[in-house]
Simulated scan of single mutants.
Amino acid sequence: MFERMKIMDRKWVSPLVLLALIAVVWLLRGTGHPEQVPALQVALLDGGQIDLGHADGKVRLVNFWSTSCGPCIRGMPGLADTHRRHAARGFEVVAVAMSYDAPSHVQDFAQREKLPFRVGFDPVGALDRGFGGIRATPTSFLVDRDGRIVKRIIGNPDHRQLDALIDTLLPPAS
C-alpha cells in the first residue's frame, strides 16, 4: 500500500508544481500594463519633478526599485553604465523608489553610489498603480520618444539586449 501511495504522490507533483508556477506568474502580472506612459508626476531627489506622460522626445528607462531589494542594488551599476552610454543621444534612466522605501534610505544610497540619473519617489504608490501594479522589483519600462512603452522588464535587464533595443529607438550617434 505504501508503494502505491508513493507512485500516486509522484503523479501529482508535476501538476502541483505547474499550478504553483501559474499562480506566481498570475501574482506578478499586475493589473495590466499600459501601452502609453501614464501622465504622472515623479518627485525627484533634487526637489524637482518630471512628468513621465509628457513625451519630450527622450527615450527613457523607468526603473521601479527599492533599497531593500538585493537584485535592485546589484543592478544599479549596470543601469548607470547604460545611462552613460546613451545619455548624449537623448536617453535617460529614471529610477523610482517604491512607496515602502524610506526617502532617507533612497537619498543616502543615491548619494553614496553617485547615481548619474534621476532618482524619484512614489510615496503613495500612484506610479506603481499607474504602471499597472508593480509586483516585483526591479521592474523597468523602456519608453520610446513618443511616450509609448516598448518593453517591460522584470528583474535586471540583459544589457546587451537593452543596448540593442535602445539603439533602435535613438538617432544614430554622430
Rank of each mutant, 00 (worst) to 15 (best):
174 S>C: 00
83 H>F: 10
146 D>I: 03
21 L>Y: 08
20 A>R: 07
159 H>R: 04
14 S>Q: 01
69 C>A: 10
50 I>D: 07
146 D>E: 12
153 I>T: 06
105 H>G: 15
58 K>R: 14
105 H>C: 03
164 A>E: 11
49 Q>I: 12
94 V>F: 01
56 D>Y: 07
56 D>R: 10
37 V>W: 02
28 L>V: 12
156 N>V: 07
21 L>D: 08
98 M>G: 09
93 V>L: 03
120 G>H: 00
169 L>D: 02
29 R>F: 01
78 G>T: 09
167 D>F: 06
43 A>Y: 04
50 I>G: 04
111 Q>S: 13
96 V>T: 09
123 P>Q: 08
66 S>R: 06
77 P>L: 08
56 D>V: 11
75 G>D: 09
63 N>I: 00
47 G>Y: 11
122 D>E: 05
46 D>P: 13
63 N>D: 13
99 S>A: 15
117 F>R: 02
62 V>E: 00
113 E>R: 15
116 P>Q: 03
144 D>Y: 01
151 K>R: 14
96 V>Y: 05
54 H>N: 12
40 L>M: 12
85 R>K: 15
56 D>P: 06
15 P>I: 06
6 K>Q: 08
17 V>M: 13
29 R>H: 08
12 W>K: 14
159 H>M: 02
117 F>M: 12
59 V>C: 08
123 P>K: 06
68 S>H: 12
5 M>L: 15
50 I>N: 02
32 G>R: 06
75 G>H: 06
140 S>K: 00
89 R>K: 09
85 R>D: 14
78 G>R: 03
39 A>S: 14
93 V>G: 08
3 E>V: 11
61 L>E: 08
147 G>P: 07
161 Q>Y: 02
115 L>V: 10
133 G>W: 01
148 R>V: 05
130 G>H: 00
1 M>Y: 08
26 W>E: 07
151 K>G: 00
45 L>Y: 06
16 L>C: 12
131 F>H: 00
136 A>V: 09
145 R>H: 06
24 V>Q: 10
121 F>I: 03
134 I>K: 00
85 R>F: 04
94 V>W: 02
24 V>N: 08
61 L>T: 03
59 V>F: 14
12 W>A: 11
88 A>G: 10
108 D>Y: 09
91 F>R: 09
121 F>M: 13
119 V>G: 02
72 C>W: 08
30 G>M: 11
96 V>N: 04
3 E>P: 00
152 R>H: 02
93 V>A: 02
101 D>V: 11
11 K>C: 14
151 K>I: 02
102 A>K: 14
26 W>Y: 15
34 P>A: 12
126 A>G: 00
87 A>P: 03
52 L>K: 04
10 R>F: 14
35 E>K: 09
36 Q>T: 14
86 H>T: 11
127 L>G: 01
155 G>C: 12
150 V>I: 14
71 P>Y: 05
132 G>D: 01
169 L>I: 03
15 P>F: 11
9 D>E: 05
17 V>E: 04
114 K>G: 14
68 S>N: 10
74 R>E: 14
4 R>H: 06
71 P>E: 09
28 L>W: 01
99 S>Q: 15
49 Q>L: 09
4 R>L: 13
95 A>D: 04
47 G>Q: 07
90 G>W: 01
61 L>H: 07
76 M>L: 15
147 G>A: 04
152 R>D: 00
27 L>C: 03
104 S>K: 12
169 L>K: 01
24 V>P: 03
145 R>P: 03
133 G>M: 05
73 I>N: 05
22 I>C: 13
15 P>M: 12
